[in-house]
Structure formats: C-alpha cells, structure tokens
Design a protein around this nucleic acid. Sequence first.
RNA 1: GGGCCGUUAGCUCAGCUGGUAGAGCAGGUGACUCUUAAUCACAAGGUCGAUGGUUCGACCCCAUCACGGCCCA
Length: 516
Amino acid sequence: MRMTTEAPQTDDQTDAPEPTAEERASAEQRIMADRRAKLDAMTAAGGEPWPYSASPTARVEDLVLAHANLEDGVETEERYVLAGRMMMRRGQGKLIFAGLMDRSGTIQLFVSKAVVGEDGFAAVDDFDLGDWIEVSGTAMKTRKGELSLKVDSARLLAKCIRPLPEKFHGLADEEQRRGKRYLDLVANRDSLDVFVTRSKVVSAIRRFLEERDFLEVETPVLQPIYGGAAARPFETHHNQLDMKLYLRIATELYLKRLIVGGLERVFEIGPNFRNEGISFKHNPEFTMIELYQAYADYDDIMDLFEELVPAVASSVLGTTSIEHPEHGEIAFGNHPWPRIPLRDAILERSRIDIDRAAEDEMREALREAGHDPKGDTTRGKLIDALLTKFVEPNLIQPTFLTDYPVELSPFARTHPGSERTTRRFEVFAAGMELGNAFSELNDPAVQLARFEEQGAARAAGDDEAEHLDEDYITALEYGMPPTGGLGFGIDRLVMLFTGQKSVRDVILFPARRSKA
RNA sequence: GGGCCGUUAGCUCAGCUGGUAGAGCAGGUGACUCUUAAUCACAAGGUCGAUGGUUCGACCCCAUCACGGCCCA
C-alpha cells in the first residue's frame, strides 16, 4: 500500500484557495512524509521496520570475486545473504533491477515477481533509494552479462527518510561534502575509498613498526607546558585543578621521557592541535606519528623512513610508486633517496649561502622572489623562508634535506665540532614537507642552554619559541641514550597516496565555521 | 587580513539587454520479464543565501552581511 500527500485536485477556477503550508511542502518534505507513511503502514501491518540486527553471510566483493567469470545468462546454486544500501532501482514490469552497495562494492539485484512472490515484490517495490536492506538469493549473470544476486527474499533493515544526492554526479557541494561527510561517503565512492585507504595506511604503519619492535604508547593530549614544535596552541582550563592546560602541538617531549625510562623504541599516532590558519595543507587538528628509537642516529632514521614509505605504499596500493595528479609519477622505491644538505639546496636554488650571507641579502632574495620577509624576524626564520620559497616546491621525488641550522632545531644534536648545524633532516615529496627527524639532543646542559636561547627569542617577539620545560631537563639528567626521532603527518601521506589536493579531503570531519 | 569566484527545486546545473524561473536526476501516478545514467506518458515540486537600496518592475543592477571555494600575505 502506498500513501501519498497529494494536494487536492484543482479545477479550472481562478479563485482557488491559497494552498496551506502543508500543501506547499517542499519536494524534500513530501518525500519524507511519503517515506514516514511507509514506515507507519509497515508497523500497522505488524512488520518491524527497524529490526535489531541482520545476518549477512558475505560482502558484495566476495560474490563478485567468486563469480566474475560466470557466462552470460548462467545461474548458480551459490547462496548469499547480503546487506547494504539500495542505491539504484529500475522497474521493468514484473522484474526489478536494483543496486545494492556495501563497503566492499556494488552489485545488481535481480528481482523477479515469479521468484519472490506478490508480497515480496511489493515489498521491494516499496523500498526507497538509500534504504538499508538485507537480501538473500543466488549468484547469477543476466543475459546481458551483469553479475547479479537473484533475490528470493528481501527485508528492510533501516529506512532512509531523506532523499539522497543525485546518483550520477554525486554530492558536489564542498560545504556539504565536508560538513555532512556521511552523505559524501554514501554518494561519492571515491571519497569512501580515500578513507578506506587512510585506515589501511595507518594500519600498515603500525604493522611496519611493530615488526621492528616498536611499542605503541599514549601520552597526554592536555599538557601544562606545550612544546616540540613551532606553533601556537589551543588553551583550555581544568576546573578542579584550576590550572591552564594546552592541547598538545607535538608528542615529542613526552615520548623522549619514555626513552629515558627505557622503552627503547616507541611511537604514537594521534591528533596534534595547532592554533593557526586553515589551508589546503593545514587543519587545526591533524594526525601525526612520532617515533623514537634508542641507539639510532639520524642516518638510521633516514634508512627507516626510506623503507617505511614504500612498504606502506605496496601494502596499501600494491605498488611503490604513485601517480600524482599534478606532478606525475613519484617513485618511493628508488633507494637511496637523495640526501642533500640544506645549505647546498638553498645555495643551488637561490644563490644564497646560509652560512655566510647577511640577513639583508636573504631579505633581498626573498623580496625578488615575491615574498615579503617582514615577518621573518630571525636568521632562522629567514632560512626557513628561503627553504619554503626556493627549494620546497621543487622537491617532487622523495628527497631528504639534511643538516638544519641550530636556531631552527632546539631539540636536535649538532654535528661534532659544529655549533651551528644539526643532525636533522626533513623529507619532502610532491613539493610538500612529509616529515622531520633528528638525532635527539640528550645533553641536559646543552638542552637547557637551548631553552634559554628560545626564551630570548620569545622575549624578542617570537611567539612560537619553546618554553622551558624543567621536568624535561630533569629527565635528561637521568640519562637519555643516543636516540633518533622522527615525526610525520599522516594526513599528508594519505594525500599523496590518494591523489587528494587538500587535507580537508583526507580528514573525515575537517574544521569549519559553525553555523550554529 | 587582501583579491577573485560562487550560493537558483532534495541533488547536479541552465537562466540573454531588468519584465517574479527551466532542464536532468530523485520523488508521485501509469506501462514494461534483461535493465545498465533504462525508456515512454502524465502530473507535481521554488521565500532564486540574507537584509537593505535603485526601479513602474529585480534571480539579474548597487551596498552590507553570512557561508563556501580558489589565489595571495
């Protein structure tokens, strides 16, 4: 039975009464009223429109893999129970062709009145696009060659009361794609695949590290002193302790305390929070992995990263190369990746020698390149700007830049005999920074001096400089073994692996202005 | 923070020089036992982002605001 909300038939009179609010309901409201009426009718007839569970025996992909080679028009006795959303339906008289989608894929349902009977056919006819359903039947291929489930019974699992986005173009509106991500996932298969890939990437990284004896740990998100990166924090307050707390901008200083404690190899995957601008490569909360390996130098960490990325890529994508929408093929399997001292890279691209050039020369070069160096108040920030402006966009294939100046690297060890250059690297691909690593500074006296330099920088106006963390110094005084550490952004790696141009397309619920 | 673009039916989009709106999909009714973005017929669906202004008249011109996108700092 079908209930409708038709407006009364109007005759030819011109003085017809104004339609009531109900009669002027929008298309969406009419659809919703119609679908709710179906639920009511089902309940009235003794049915259960919201069952507690379902019992699928297979995924769509299982059926597809098992029967891909079936000849056209051939039916099998192989029984399947599938569950998912009905995403397509074409009535064909006493036949209905429908499409069932689960996470693994989509398959056609072949529904014949002769097989499911009068009531079963009416029930399928009553399903709406988007309804969750459970169907059972046998695998077959239609005469036209479409692999299908020949349905002998079907039931509603949950009603989709609102109309779904358009079936061919999907959901295009960026505001809705990111704000109503569930709709994006339903309507845009590509988007669902991105997030499936993301999950597999994280899982593959875990496996890679666990195979190498790393322990996954959890450290505080709420920190009384934030540190480990140059960024501004989000602040919050603990009521009972009456204490200001910060959402972490990095996990670094806590993880290294665990190296002091003797855990030897640790990693943490989780959100960091930086109170900064939103762009195609920045979201205020994003997912970082940091790992620390006792007894390792930064060369060892380069080796590790160089192995990790192709291992993850081949596990997730089945290949160690990716096709970047803008930059073409990027090969992660070509070892070793170039390891270029930062000074050489900047010298080659900008003809500025960061060891010798005066700060004014750097400013001039930046100005010529169209960058206003007004905000770059320190030598370190100028070098960082030269890197960002001249070098980074040109690093398409995976590349290590090594040996960063100490003023940019307050937690990294210097080279022997050098006070200015650290055993630190950053790694780049597709013109984007992927990760940052170094041989960890473990001399407490030197670390304290670095904090003091940072304090001076802060006093001079650098609001991203590190705060003195006395407990961290105390920990180092108990002794931290020589250690290599690495941090890299999960979001950016997923961007590379999925060909997305914005972090907002690899974060399920990216930050957005609230409408509330 | 600055510049440019966008916001029209549930969704995807048209809409001319200012004369109060169209299509496809989805939804409704009907036909159809092999459809593939099914097809065919009929009927329905709109506070044109919001608020002001100009005008006899505004989706269209102007201003402000909101939200989104892209670029720049």
